[in-house]
Design a protein around this nucleic acid. Structure first.
Lengths: 259, 259
DNA sequence: CCCGTCGTGCTTACGCCGTAAACACGGACC
DNA sequence: GGTCCGTGTTTACGGCGTAAGCACGACGGG
């Protein structure tokens, strides 16, 4: 009401306390006009920086120099925005899918590359990996963190193309996704998301320290427990899984070998 | 579980033999007066019934026949309520810990029982398992879904008490939690949380169906993919993990051996 | 018996949230 | 120049978490 926009000719004295920053369009060249991809990318950036629960439509708007409601031209709502963010991040992996498909190196190489690709994503975006992990997939059968039919198809192709039976390929898909999800979710949560949080007067210092007296083994093993062996663990479990799958494959090829 | 049975007849004025500082007033004539445990239990019930995102302080109040703000006498806020819920549900497993510790059956039996116990919790409360899985643990080193120092201690005790080196026990803990988390999170998310949802005009029927044309393998394997093999998978992976651990144990006992 | 005290739940209020709806405005095309 | 359309803005509404103060009933000491 009281805020009358200064007419164009007048000298805008910017010190007025009650004048909002009306910043419809910068002088001269207009700003690039926002589209879905840009919104989603900004959201990824924002989450990486401030964490998931800090993401708000209005704050996202501000982060883009825009008024919050503007986002609704490009996403259907907050949920859709989050879906889009997950999809965008997962699709980072698609750099060029043929790399992952490269048949000349066999299915084990494929699974290795894929696993490391997913792990890189998880480590690059620890704050939103829980989202990738827990958001219900768009299609049934598609299991996080391999969240797309495209990946499912390529996974099945890689295995059935190298001698796996249909059943074995499906079982492998399930074992593989479980492995990725468990390891990576724990790895990102263990590192603790850094976050430059807007708030953070956290001060529960030794709530655990005190009770450690009751848990002598935990106390004794504390040094071991706080070592970060994620990478080695991941590698070892992956190796183990691949061996298991190879055993399945070998046995399925010669049917009559029951001990 | 039922720690709170009213003593028979006798003197009703004294309900609590030993409480904190002063007497908490026993119920008079009106309704039983709400306490933290009851609030948390009601929240578990509510989440099981309506899902996580339906949980609201006011709705929780209504669910308890109370005015929402009343909850703040017993929980510090929404976050604290959720923490309490997770703790409460996880503690269901504690029915009697000696069952899990029973040393006469060895560490493998212990890990089996524990795994099945956690799985039961996950299946009983599918809507809040994601919470159990992703909420940052109170203490470092404690990994979901085994969310307490008590369990960490008992786990380490079981293994080191049966010949595992410190390093091997810690590695086993990590492998075991990864296994549980991956399998159970996918299992509960796959079954799709039922939820009598307050809203649910969901009608995206075949959004995936159409695109199936592009994914011939997925379409061919669809029947296999939609089978629910969770239980068998879980059993098999658990078995495999235990074998792996046993191998580690055996090898650590005779240092320079070859099969 | 009354009266202060205290624990419990209720009421009110504030600021932020997601989002529906109407509006303003600048460029594209005729 | 007019018209349209795509974009961002304004305003508004109901619901959220929660801070603060109030009402009331049960207790214990006089």
């Amino acid at each position: 009401m009281a805020d009358d926009a200064a007419p164009p000719g007048a000298v805008p004295t910017d010190g007025q306390p009650h004048t909002r920053a009306l910043r419809a369009s910068p002088p001269g060249t207009g700003r690039t006009p926002l589209d879905r991809r840009r919104v989603l990318a900004a959201a990824v950036e924002f989450i990486d920086e401030h964490g998931l629960e800090a993401l708000t439509m209005r704050r996202m708007g501000a982060h883009l120099g825009v008024e919050g409601m503007a986002l609704y031209r490009h996403v259907a709502g907050r949920e859709d925005l989050l879906d889009g963010v997950v999809e965008l991040v997962v699709d980072e992996l698609y750099g060029d899918p043929e790399v992952y498909l490269a048949p000349e190196h066999g299915w084990q190489d494929y699974l290795q590359r894929l696993a490391h690709g997913v792990r890189r994503i998880a480590l690059d975006h620890p704050a939103l990996f829980p989202l990738i992990a827990t958001r219900p997939p768009a299609a049934p059968w598609v299991r996080p963190p391999l969240r797309s039919l495209r990946w499912l198809e390529s996974f099945l192709e890689a295995l059935t193309g190298h001698g796996f039976s249909d059943e074995a390929a499906v079982a492998a898909y399930r074992a593989y996704t479980s492995f990725l999800l468990g390891h990576l979710l724990l790895e990102v949560s263990q590192r603790g998301v850094p976050i430059t949080a807007l708030d953070d007067p956290e001060g529960a210092p030794d709530a655990g320290e005190r009770s450690l007296a009751e848990y002598p083994l935990v106390r004794r093993l504390a040094p071991l427990l706080s070592e970060d062996e994620s990478a080695a663990e991941f590698e070892e479990s992956l190796e183990n899984l691949l061996e298991r799958l190879q055993r399945v494959l070998r046995e399925s090829r010669r049917p009559g070998s029951t001990p």
